[in-house]
Design a binder for these strands. Sequence first.
RNA 1: GUCCCCAUCGUCUAGCCCGGUCCAGGACAUCGGCCUUUCACGCCGACGACAGGGGUUCAAAUCCCCUUGGGGACGCCA
Length: 469
Amino acid sequence: MSTIITRFPPSPTGYLHVGGARTALFNWFYARHTQGRFVLRIEDTDTVRSTQASADAIFDALKWLGVDWDEGPYFQTQRFHIYTEYVQKLIDAGHAYYCTCSPEEVEAMRRHAMATGGKPKYDGTCREKGLSKCDHAVVRFRAPRTGTTVIHDVVKGDIVFQNAEQDDFIIQRSDGTPTYNFVVVVDDISMGINTIIRGDDHVNNTPRQIMMYRALGAELPVFAHVPMVLGKDKTRLSKRHGAMSVTAYRDMGFLPEAMINYLVRLGWSYGDQEFFTREDLIEKFTLEHIGRSAGVFDMDKLLALNADHIKATPPRLLTPHLMPFLKERGYPAEEGDYLDQVILTLNARSKTLIEMADQARFYYVETVEYDPAAAEKNLKPESLDPLRLLIQHLESLTDFTIAGLEKIFLTVMEATGLKLGKIAQPVRVALTGKTASPGIFEIIEILGKGAVVRRLQQAVDYIETHVAS
RNA sequence: GUCCCCAUCGUCUAGCCCGGUCCAGGACAUCGGCCUUUCACGCCGACGACAGGGGUUCAAAUCCCCUUGGGGACGCCA
C-alpha cells in the first residue's frame, strides 16, 4: 500500500478519556511507524453537546501525550457545505430519499419489530414514495435489503452481516445537519484516510459505512477494530470507575511516557517486553500484535510502569514534569545541579511525581518539622553526644564528600561505641524530620555543610529543651 | 428481544494462524528471603490460568461444534 493515512476523530463532548487516548495512540504510532500521516478531526455535528472547551481539553491532552498531527484539526461543522453536496449526490443517484415519518412513528415501528422478535429498525415506509424536499423531512440512505456485507477486519478477521438486518438510516436530520455514519465516510474519503483504527464498539456501524463507500463509489479503507478498555468490574469504563480523563493522570503525577507505555501495552504486545519508550513504540508498533479481547484498566500496573519510567528518565528530562508539583508546594526549586541530585536520590523511591515532590520537601524547606513519632523515638538524650561530636567534626571537615563523611561517622562510632544505625537514625530525623529517607551520606553531601550543621544543632536544642532530663 | 465480538494465572499478556519443543513463559499485584544506615531500588523464591462439554487426531491451550460466561451494538449521539 502507498502512504498510510490514519486519523483520530473525537467528538468534543467531554475530556479525552483513557479509551479514546489509546485509540489516538494506536493511530498515531501506526502512522509514525509506517512514516505515514496522522489526521485530527473534530466530530462536532452534534451541535447541542459539542463545546469548544471540550475540544481544547482534547488538544491539551493530546499535547501532553506527545501526539501531534500532520493535518487538521478539521471541524465538521465547518464542512457542512461538503456534506450537503454529497447528500444531493446520493439523492440524485437514487441512493437516498426524503422521509417524513415522525420520530414517534419510527419509535412505534421499532417497538413492533422488537415485539415480533426482530431487530428494531425503520420499516421503509417512505422508501418508494419519491418524496421531494420539504420541511421536517429527513434524508435516509437506501440500504441494500438482500445479500451480505462483510468487514475484512485486520484484528478480528472477516465479520459477516446480513443486509436484511440493516435499515435505511438517516444521513441528514430534519434540521438539515448530517449524521455520523454519513459524515464519517465522506470525511474519510475526502481526507484520503486509508486505515481506520477504532474501538470495536464501532463494528456494528461498519457495514453501514461500507454500503456508503460503495454508494459513493469509493475504495474501502483497512479496518482495525480494537477491543474496549474495561473497568475493574469488567464493564465499560465510566465515571464511577474513577479518573477517566487523561489529564487527570498528569495531575496525579504520571509521566506521559508511562501513560503511553501502559495504554499501548493494554491490548497490544511485543513478545514479553513490558517497558517501551516512545521511540520503541514507533519502531515496533504494528497492527499484527493487537489482541482480540477486551482489557481491564489496572492502576497498579500503570503505577509500576510510572515508577520504571521515573527511574529511567534523566534528571534534566524529568525536571519539567516535576517542577509544577514542586512549585505547587511552594518550594524554591529551579533547574540545575542541586535539583538533579535531589531527583537522583528520589527516583528509585517514587511511583509518582507527587510522591517525589512530597519526599523532596526537606531539601527545600528552611527548617524541618519533625514527625512526632520519629522525634520521640530517635531524638533522645543518648543521641546528644554523637550529635555534638558530629557537629564538631563536620565543621572542621574539608573533604566534604561521601568518602570524607564516612570517615567522620567512623570516628564518631569509635568515640561513642555506637553502631552506625544508632547514629544514622537520629541524624536522619534531624535532617529530614522522618525515619525514612535517601541514604544519609547522600543527603548530607547534597544539603551542604551549613544546612547540615544548622539542622543537627537544631536537633540538639530540641532534645535539650523538649526531652532533656 | 435481535445482531456482532470475545474467552490462558486476581490483572495485562506470550503461546494459538503453521497441533507435539507447554504437567503453559513474562509482567503487575500478593507472600517469603537476600542486600542494607532507614525507606526504597535491586536480586532470589513462592502462590497462581488453558471457562465447561463434545468431537477430529497417535497427539489439542492450539483445529471444529455446542453450552456457559462476559462485552458491544441496535438514536433525527458519535
